[in-house]
Design a protein around this nucleic acid. Structure first.
Lengths: 351, 351
DNA sequence: CATTCCTCCCAAAGCGCTTTGGATACCCTG
DNA sequence: CAGGGTATCCAAAGCGCTTTGGGAGGAATG
């Protein structure tokens, strides 16, 4: 038997209007009265009825999530982690989700349906590609949205939260170069994804500053699972002139890469250096690697929470959030990076 | 400018009452009238306002999801797949989700809060353990729920959807035994999870029928990732008397196991047989393995959809669903199973 | 023919909140 | 002391649906 606004108002000897206004921060209510109201709320445990608020305000108090069910995305470990961040924040504000599993070819229709339904106040978007067409669609539907990541090319006037992928991989590459590495490999995410393109750009840029060039045979793109990390590294090591250092776009990839390295009889950090991007997945901590991993770190869950904050803030029009945010990833040096070994790697394999 | 009930009623020259009843399947409305109403709905594209329905009925039209954020569960690939099934069905009925990320120790509090909030009509529960305490909690909160999986021990009178894990692994083991295998290994999910316990039981039972015993050194429990499959298999192969067949609790585990097998210079299907449980993950199809995988198959996404159906059906009290369902997994024989090789496996390694 | 019983429909009262459009009292100006 | 602000509060009208409590009309019953 939760108490409702009417009862609360009676209890206080006030009108519903005043109580409502006190709670929603309107100015035309005496400070003392507001305190009384707040106190009564605490004592009675009053919680406004969301259904009634929805009806009265026309807001849905929920955010739409188009869940990609394409191969290797929806079931991706990163998705769950980001979602946890989103949900963590949403639950604080009593926001709901409308989860829409959707194949890539149906996405546009899904957006339209969702926008027209009035069931969501805002949408969230991820897995940006270059010239991603979804941004234009969402704009034309004039429904608020926040993108996680950034497209490449096309208009830039849309709200997003991204990390500085170029910068992160530039920094990482720079570190490797300073340690004397010249043959640097990259095990990256899928080629069409914006973050992967930017990370590669970061590597290229750093190399160019030292008059080095990125060897395309030392770049692999794939779904970011441990298995592909293993395969890629294995193939790199088989090359006539294998890399002395490798950058991985995720700790999962790094896990596989490390295994391939060990299996080749090499040691991470001395024979070959490795830096991974760390999304701070609870199940895959870089400090727990047999050789603790040097990483560029940025919490995916924190990003999820922040996106949720911005979406919710926008809906409640509380507080002014920046429209575009670019988070800088931290470069954290651990034991997996060391000076380029003089020893020729392939010679080892012939033992 | 969506049309609402009032306008629709005016358009039809009927009262809101009658239109509402026509739409909600009440008997006291003439069949012809109902047809007229339905036709008008189609033409106008009328969709009842969910917020208003919520308020009027007191139902939330949404289901609560306690998302485990414990290590290796929330970010599990299987979670995403199940969730996609849930959402797929929910979206058809315009149901929302309340996602609650929660650490295991906070789960009880989360349940209470959720039940008291009135924000959800029903809850969904998964990752059953033996004597899982959460069932009793949910019962005491008297909120409808459906469990995916089943506890082991404790009262059995709660609604669930499970697959016959014991049966599936019994069948699989039987097949292996019939093919002449005697040393059979099991790479299983985490030890405390009910499905893993049951699968092991299935193996044990089948072996016992042939007067064989499950060698505990041939059983590994772990998070079901490709990496652990690899590690487990590697260790099995190093044993003095390695298995000639192995059962994997997921295709991800099998992926790793296959790699270990190949790496040892052995061939799947001839030197060593392998059967995996297949949750039908779009990114990991058993038929696409280098040697197509024999599996026990049961779609996780279908299970998600079914659980959603039952939850939603229960809320709308439409249709009678069985309270407890046990799905039988299909045993699908492909090329990864063959007669036990006469060749001693370890001898190969010494070449 | 009077009565009862269906069948089919309607008016109106909520559900619990927000918001509009005043009121009232008090304080300042000039 | 009249006129104009200002600060603070309230009554009531929705939001769009469901549901209660009839009520009219015709068929069936006695």
């Amino acid at each position: 038997m939760p108490v409702n606004l009417k009862q609360l108002a009676e209890l206080l000897g006030l009108s519903q209007t005043t109580v409502s206004r006190a709670l929603n921060g309107y100015p035309e209510v005496n400070a003392k009265t507001r305190q009384r109201v707040l106190k009564a709320v605490r004592e009675t445990g009053y919680r406004p009825n969301r259904a009634a608020q929805r009806l009265a305000t026309g807001k849905a108090y929920s955010i739409g999530l188009v869940m990609p069910i394409a191969s290797g995305i929806g079931s991706d470990i990163h998705f769950g982690e980001f979602l946890a961040g989103l949900a963590e924040e949403a639950v604080k504000h009593d926001f709901h989700f409308v989860l829409n599993p959707s194949a890539p070819e149906d996405e546009e229709a899904t957006f339209r349906r969702l926008a027209a339904s009035g069931n969501v106040d805002a949408l969230f978007l991820a897995h940006m590609r270059s010239n991603d067409p979804r941004i234009a669609i969402l704009k034309s539907l004039s429904i608020p949205f926040v993108v996680h990541g950034r497209s490449i090319g096309g208009p830039k006037d849309y709200p997003f939260l991204d990390i500085d992928n170029t910068g992160a991989f530039y920094d990482a590459t720079r570190l490797l170069i300073q340690l004397g590495h010249r043959r640097i490999a990259l095990i990256n995410g899928q080629e069409h994804l914006a973050f992967a393109i930017r990370r590669k750009k970061g590597v290229t840029r750093a190399l160019k500053e030292w008059d080095l060039e990125l060897d395309e045979t030392l770049v692999h793109h794939s779904v970011m699972t441990d298995e592909y990390g293993y395969r890629s590294m294995q193939r790199f090591l088989k090359q006539p002139d294998p890399p002395t250092a490798v950058l991985c776009s995720s700790t999962a990839l790094a896990l596989g890469a490390v295994r391939a390295i060990n299996q080749a009889g090499l040691t991470v950090g001395t024979d070959i250096s490795i830096i991974a991007h760390d999304d701070v997945l609870p199940m895959l901590k870089p400090e727990n690697f047999s050789v603790p991993l040097t990483t560029t770190r940025s919490s995916l869950r924190a990003a999820g929470a922040r996106v949720a904050s911005r979406l919710i803030g926008g809906i409640l029009d509380r507080g002014a959030y920046p429209d575009q945010e670019l988070w800088r990833a931290e470069l954290i040096v651990r034991a997996s990076t060391g000076p380029a070994s003089a020893k020729k790697i392939n010679s080892r394999k012939r033992v």
